[in-house]
Write a protein that binds this DNA or RNA. Structure first.
Lengths: 311, 311
DNA sequence: GCAATAGTGTCTATAAGACAATATATC
DNA sequence: GATATATTGTCTTATAGACACTATTGC
């Protein structure tokens, strides 16, 4: 570190990629673009692009790319949560040249259909259940990697690219039948659902399958201890709608009564608007009260994911 | 995103910087190097360096830099926990040219005195209490940023550089007298302690004060729900030593009895070795039993930081 | 009217924290 | 022997989850 000058060193291309998540018809969707260019032509990839060196921050680049890809104006973008996810820099992750990408994670309310940015790329919201994320379910058994060794769980180089810290408990091998990858476990309206015969999973370009998987891990963890689940909803929402977010992201049904009381007991999570929904449930029931997001930045106590205790 | 080629775009220098933490004499220390070069000459900076484009991953670059700076061999490095912290890419963070740095966070047991890497830089473990981290205590009040608005806590561009997700509750404005910055709140031996008259805080180069602060936030959060506090200790340790880690990192004293029972009740956190410490406490007391890290990757239930509930 | 849903009440098991107590070292 | 520490015990309170119950609405 003594006498170096950055200009003496070979530079690397730096991009931002966005894992933008939204809920459509009760299923979690991610924003993807179909690649027209050379590597991975025809495959789907995360929206993103190059950072304008020296002219914008990483955050700004991510916000710009997200706006371009979704075609959203500033007002809509205001309601989108955007945070850095992690950086990925395997030497060969782009076959053309070394590219380090800084991945961002976005939570968006149900947005109008994506339209490709200025360029001719096709952008679309794809249900995460249609993605082939299995390839990255690497050999991590999550516990007792090196049995008996004190360094057992230290995973310094366990993950290949950057280890973008999932920030909280993992879904500990959710059984088949549940989980985000099940997609339609809690279908409200069969909007863009994959359909009953579930076509072949879509492959993702580059290392984007891992990035999406890391983003999903982060999303699942983050709604546990932050009120960010509300970022998937409109300005006003019912407790049942909020529960739908948790059920869709976690992929497991939640007890309606307990969830209701729990949400209202966490200070600053939601605050009542005083009004009620226009109509009751789809098949009957009283009109639910409406709430908006409260001022809390963290949930105390947190909403812990079910099925991860010693049971 | 349509027809681009990475080679058409201006490249950016990519570095890795390490926030390496260790405990010396009951106080948290961070590994720093004194800058000999032009910008910020004489100031202290995080150890790090350029990523060898196309020849190593980000993780590998971080491990290499840490090894070079600490002079550790592979055996010692094995016991160090290293994870990605976040990326920082403000356009003007390096006055010379655009540089994006990928920050890493390391937890290390008490290591031999650092010696500068191959180059002539002076590397040293500095108590975090001596650092000037206050500059980065930006205007975030942590809650109700935009009162009443549903977007109140969405901090898209709230932080300037990359928002490296602190992953868990923040120290919510810890009062004076406690906190990591107090340093000697739980002094075991007055080893490298700042001394009673506490010299002027050291300024950090570039945006490294923010990076260190983010690393401390992450460390404080991470030991809550992972067993990584054991990474600060040797292969075998007593519960009191483990408690010392928590007290040093969190900066607040913990109830010995409750902590003891709690740690032993979390499955997979620690496992007994069967032997006991060579001698009792410094001023008397029975010999404590020795434990080693268990196989758990996550703590269930977590060890929640005190003083952050509704009280 | 039937059925589903919103919201509330109750009960139990678990966990956290405040003390308290006992045994065992060091000085 | 005084004193500090390790470890365990007890008690109170908060919380999570299972279950039950009522009221209200769509069909």
């Amino acid at each position: 570190m003594a006498a170096y000058d950055p200009r003496d060193f070979p530079a690397i291309a730096v991009t931002v990629d966005i894992v933008a998540l939204t809920l459509r018809g009760g299923a979690l969707h991610v924003l993807l673009v179909e690649r027209g260019g050379r590597p991975f032509r025809g495959a789907w990839a995360l929206p993103g692009g190059f950072v304008r060196a020296g002219r914008e921050s990483l955050d700004a680049a991510a916000a710009r790319e997200l706006a371009e890809e979704t075609g959203l104006d500033a007002a809509h973008l205001e309601r989108v949560h955007l945070e850095q996810l992690g950086s990925y820099g395997e030497p060969a992750r782009d076959p053309r040249m070394p590219v380090v990408t800084v991945a961002y994670l976005a939570f968006a309310p149900d947005l109008p259909e994506a339209r490709g940015g200025g360029d001719a790329t096709a952008a679309a919201w794809i249900p995460v259940s249609r993605l082939d994320l299995g390839a990255r379910r690497d050999g991590r058994t999550d516990r007792a990697a090196a049995p008996g060794s004190a360094a057992g769980d230290r995973d310094r180089t366990a993950r290949t690219a950057g280890e973008p810290d999932a920030a909280r408990p993992r879904p500990s091998e959710q059984g088949p039948g549940h989980g985000i990858d099940g997609g339609d476990s809690v279908p409200r309206t069969p909007a863009a659902a994959p359909g009953p015969e579930a076509p072949a999973p879509l492959p993702l370009a580059f290392d984007h399958a891992r990035i999406v998987a890391d983003g999903l891990d982060r999303a699942r963890a983050k709604i546990e201890y932050t009120p960010l689940a509300t970022a998937f909803l409109g300005e006003e929402f019912t407790i049942a709608e909020l529960r739908g977010v948790y059920e869709s992201v976690w992929g497991s049904p939640l007890h309606a009564g307990n969830f209701h009381r729990k949400v209202l007991s966490v200070p600053g999570f939601v605050e009542p608007t005083g009004s009620t929904a226009a109509r009751g449930g789809a098949r009957g029931g009283p009109r639910a009260r409406l709430y908006r997001a409260g001022g809390a930045a963290l949930l105390h106590p947190a909403l812990l994911r079910p099925g991860r205790d010693g049971s």
